[in-house]
Amino acid sequence: MASLNHALRALLLGGVLMAPGAAIAHPDLATFVAAAFSKEPVTVDCTLENGVGAKCYEITVNYLPEGLKIGPFCPATLDDAGGIWHWTGENGGLYRVDAEFLKMLDGLGYRFFDDDGTVHVVDNATERPTVDHACINVSADETVKITMRLPVTPVMAETPTVLGVVGKVGVALDGVPIFSDAPSIQQTGHMPALDTCGGHIDPGGWYHWHATSTDIDTVFDQAKVGAHCALEQDSRALFGYAFDGYPMVGSTEMDGTAAAGLDQCNGHVGETALGVTYHYHASEEFPNLPGCLVGVQAQNNFSTTATAGIGATRAGEGGRNEPPRPDDGGPGHVPPGFDEAAASLGVTTDVLMQALGNPQGGRPDLAAAAENLGTTEAKLRAVLPPPPGR
């Protein structure tokens, strides 16, 4: 513990220095909703991503917490209102998925509906879109179990891990997995709409969030979006734990004041319900999640019994499809040369791929990727392999 405290005291992130003697909060299994787990959590031996052996809490949850109401996602027609979407193109911002938003997209060349107002809705787990632009509404698989690992004792990393698109963020207190922002319409052509709590169903059939759902109404108020999450909203409350073991809370401190002195991962050291510790705060903009994690995650910390999607361990067995995605060589595919490029940059291949977004099938923003990786664009260009065919 002494060496960990020393590392924490020595670490400077965004101008925030860990105070000497500050407590280190461990993930507290007692803070989870009792019904969150499909079986009793256990403590197991694990290996962190830095290669160090450690102890981890292993928790297993169902495809959806009991009693959690989800949806709507996609509207059936222009007369209906669906969930929400974070549009990143012209007129970018957070929108309710309704006629006004879909007609705006239509004006930009993204047509999601027929002339009669019927919205193109596709369950891409069981069918492939036959249109250029479809609203994705995936059916659930009630048999799926999800297993996650959290370090018992959080360890600060030498450099933060950039989460990128659909990066693993953590787990909420009710057992719902949390992921960073979903793929953009510009990347896939389709819209995997979120409900008004910021969640949707993975192609594997399990529900997850792309937002701090217990403080998402703060985002709706800031963006002037006519939406409301049915979950109890509390900007001061503990939401869950990031996969590095550090707690995630709403956008304010425990006394309701605005969080101040936050680092680039939207975290700092301060008082929480778990004591004084490093913790992440939700932001007031969507996605209201940390964009990076300061701690070290466990290897193999996320798996599912699903036959498709993130963490699938029985891929291809159950007839479910992977989501529409650019021509990237298939799910989990790493183009030749990217392992070596990541090693030369001193990051993992996952971090490099997340920063680039879609290095093979799309055109990554190398300047933005270099900034996220803490390097220069020139160095990034120098280590990346040439595009196929060149």
Rank of each mutant, 00 (worst) to 15 (best):
Q186H: 01
T126S: 10
G175F: 01
W87S: 06
G109C: 03
A99G: 07
N62A: 15
I24Y: 01
H190Y: 07
A140T: 14
I24D: 00
D328W: 05
S303K: 15
S303W: 12
R149G: 01
A242I: 07
L108Q: 14
D141N: 15
V33L: 13
P203C: 11
A19M: 09
F73Y: 15
V42R: 04
L4Y: 13
L238P: 07
I201R: 01
G199L: 06
L163G: 01
N124M: 13
G51M: 09
P364F: 02
G198W: 07
C229E: 03
S38Q: 12
A125C: 04
L8V: 08
R111D: 07
P323R: 05
G389R: 00
T218V: 09
P151G: 07
D98M: 08
S344Y: 00
E49M: 08
G240Q: 12
R236H: 10
S180A: 14
T147D: 04
R320F: 12
G51W: 12
K224W: 05
G250P: 02
D202A: 07
P177H: 03
L163Y: 06
G170P: 02
F179M: 14
A260H: 07
P27Q: 12
M148H: 03
A99V: 03
A308K: 00
T60N: 10
L64Q: 06
V351D: 05
T252G: 02
P75K: 03
G199D: 03
L366Q: 08
N91E: 15
P192N: 06
L173F: 11
Q264E: 15
V155A: 05
P336R: 06
V347T: 02
P65Q: 10
N266R: 12
P359A: 02
G107Q: 02
D116V: 06
I310N: 04
H333M: 05
W209R: 09
D217H: 04
T272R: 06
G295Y: 05
V296E: 00
G21E: 11
G267H: 02
F220Y: 15
G245F: 08
P160A: 11
G311A: 09
G21A: 12
L356T: 04
P65E: 09
V119H: 09
T196R: 10
F243Y: 14
M254Q: 14
G362V: 08
E49Q: 06
P324I: 03
I136K: 01
H268N: 13
G346C: 14
A312V: 09
Q297G: 10
A36S: 14
H268Q: 09
F113K: 03
S139F: 11
F338K: 07
R96Q: 02
T212R: 03
T305A: 13
P326E: 00
G205M: 07
L108I: 01
V165K: 15
A227F: 13
N358E: 09
S38G: 00
P324R: 01
H120N: 14
A260W: 00
G189A: 13
C197M: 06
